[in-house]
Computed example of a mutant assay.
Amino acid sequence: MDTSGTVSSARQAGDSDGLEALARVGLIAYGVVHLLIAWLALQLAWGGGGGGDSADQSGAMSTLAEQPFGKPLLWVVAIGLFALAVWQLAELFAQLPGLRGTGERKKKAATGSAKSVAKAAVYVFLGITALRFATGGGSSSSSDQQGAVAGVFSWPGGRFLVGAAALVLIGVGAYHVRKGVTRKFMKEVDTARASARERTLIERFGLVGYPAKGVALALVGGLVGWAAVTFDPDKASGLDGAMRTLLDAPFGKALLTVVALGIAAFGVFAFFRARHPRRT
């Protein structure tokens, strides 16, 4: 099957000024969500560890919904995130020629395709979450995740599937840490028009933000894995549960504060991506 027409159309979509403008809105929304999660985590660390919104994406969306004009703003956030997913999928189609290649080219295209699909899925999930809160139907991400894990447990081999999902989450967390340490996140930003000061700031926020987000994702994966080991879906308490687990550790307040500040740095990095997006 000749996919050249599809690839060409995808590239045109990815280069569309209108889609890029919406994707910029999505990146700003993505950054805001992370800043709100960081703020909720800091409240959790220094507010006694109880009450308030969950320190996760649902808590962030709930916080937005409670603001003046919050629900219309959530509609804008959702549209931007969906556009960001489409923009990311355009990059997936751009990888198709490489998948027909051999050797290192094919391996690089396969890796890039998997990353594009994963990122698009995250943006779609966040967009759907924003829509649910915009329409008044939002709920805790932790309870949703626990319900999903309970459902998977009822499948044949469900316990092993949950364990595999935990390993994937831990692996994604490790990937984020590695991406931060090796500075590979700089490939996501077009720094050609950025000033020297901006390039320095972009690098510093990425160096702090990616490892912090990686630690948070690995903790979520650890909780999902513990749910598989104990065969107890209540243990899969999502990002909010990971934050609370970190708080309960020795020097928990300090550790949670460091992670929260790192997640805030990741949010600021998303703003720089919106300012200097790298086209597919």
Rank of each mutant, 00 (worst) to 15 (best):
T63L: 15
A65W: 05
A65C: 04
A65E: 02
E66G: 15
E66W: 08
Q67K: 12
F69D: 09
F69N: 10
G70T: 04
P72T: 00
L73T: 15
W75V: 12
V76G: 15
V77S: 03
V77M: 11
A78K: 00
I79F: 13
G80F: 12
G80N: 12
F82A: 12
A83T: 03
A83R: 04
V86N: 11
W87G: 06
Q88W: 15
L89S: 01
L89D: 03
A90Q: 06
L92C: 05
L92K: 04
F93S: 08
Q95T: 14
L96T: 14
G98H: 02
L99Q: 08
R100P: 01
R100A: 11
G103H: 07
E104N: 10
R105F: 05
A110S: 13
T111D: 12
G112T: 05
G112E: 03
G112Y: 03
A114M: 04
K115N: 13
K115F: 11
S116D: 11
S116Q: 11
A118N: 14
A118V: 13
A118T: 15
A118M: 14
A121V: 15
A121L: 14
A121Y: 08
V122I: 15
V122F: 15
Y123C: 11
Y123I: 06
V124K: 09
V124S: 07
F125N: 08
F125V: 13
G127D: 09
I128W: 09
I128L: 13
L131K: 06
L131Q: 07
R132P: 06
A134T: 03
T135W: 05
T135E: 05
T135L: 07
G136Q: 08
G136D: 11
G137W: 13
G138E: 09
S140M: 02
S140P: 02
S141W: 14
S142M: 07
S142Y: 03
D144G: 12
Q146K: 06
G147Q: 02
G147C: 01
V149P: 00
A150Q: 03
G151Y: 00
G151T: 01
F153M: 01
S154F: 01
S154Q: 06
S154I: 00
W155F: 10
W155R: 10
G157P: 11
G157N: 11
G158L: 10
R159I: 07
R159H: 04
R159V: 08
L161I: 10
V162H: 00
A165Q: 06
A166I: 00
L167R: 05
L169W: 01
G171V: 05
